[in-house]
């Protein structure tokens, strides 16, 4: 069953058009990798799905509901949990307070987040601003989980982190896939790790989807042509 459907959307930053008709679909329990070089429209696509940027044409539906007229917070309430690029935790709140502020009723609570990221439990009374980059990323994921989303969107969740911390984040994503069956949209550049967690991939180039398929079909020819690897 299709959970998220993005149909030929376009979006602009002022007079500059950034998306030129991006389409993708995501079913319940699917893990989709959204890939592309820098500046190709990955984060812009995420922002339009979350209604942080208006869609100028095309249609986005979540669980069958058109998101056109919904403000950002209502999209989140429909079950779209965002882990934004650059972590963006609530800096002056403690770890525990960051989680409580975002909490909505459901499966995920502070105890479950602490089980997924034991390091957060150790730092629960520490202010978010004092955490390391990796810990802030864990907190950003935890905060998104506290909203009990049906779809978790991770925008460059491992960017700029130490390899060992990246491993922890990827392990957590794999665990989420395995244990919760949550639909996940991952924006990242780590092809190898994406191959381990994602079922399908969409590649963007200059604001358009240029390749869609399963991770197994993502051969060297495709990665060389669109990702430069």
């Amino acid at each position: 069953m299709t959970l998220l459907s993005v149909d030929k959307i376009t979006a602009s930053y002022g007079a500059t058009q950034a998306l030129f008709g991006v389409s993708l679909t995501l079913g319940e329990g699917d893990v989709l990798a959204l890939m592309g070089r820098n500046g190709m429209g990955k984060s812009t696509t995420v922002k339009t799905i979350c209604k942080l940027l208006p869609v100028t044409a095309g249609k986005i539906t979540m669980a069958g509901q058109d998101l056109a007229r919904l403000p950002s917070y209502k999209v989140a309430r429909l079950g779209v949990g965002l882990v934004p690029e650059g972590r963006r935790c609530f800096a002056s709140l403690s770890v525990a307070e960051n989680l409580i502020a975002a909490a909505r009723p459901g499966h995920w609570d502070s105890a479950r987040v602490a089980k997924l990221f034991p390091r957060l439990e150790e730092r629960r009374d520490q202010s978010a601003a004092s955490l390391s980059g990796g810990e802030q990323q864990m907190l950003a994921i935890g905060r998104a989980l506290m909203t009990n989303p049906r779809l978790l969107i991770l925008d460059e969740a491992t960017e700029g982190l130490a390899p060992i911390v990246r491993q922890e984040i990827w392990a957590a994503i794999a665990k989420l896939k395995l244990e919760t069956g949550m639909a996940i949209l991952v924006v990242d550049k780590s092809l190898r790790e994406l191959g381990q967690v994602a079922d399908r991939a969409v590649i963007l180039q200059r604001g358009q989807d240029v390749w869609t398929g399963s991770m197994q079909d993502l051969n060297d020819d495709v990665t060389n042509r669109y990702l430069g690897v």
Binding site: C50, L52, P71, S72, Y73, K74, A76, R77, G81, L82, P84, R88, F90, A91, S92, L93, E97, N98, I100, A101, A102, A103, R104, R143, A144, M146, T147
Partner: peptide
């Protein structure tokens, strides 16, 4: 939760919206 979200919204409204709060 109300006070914490209010405090968070003081820092940045956009981030609060992404967790489903107006």
């Amino acid at each position: 939760p109300f006070g914490l979200a209010l405090n968070a919204a003081r820092q940045t409204a956009e981030r609060v919206e992404t967790v489903g709060i107006s």
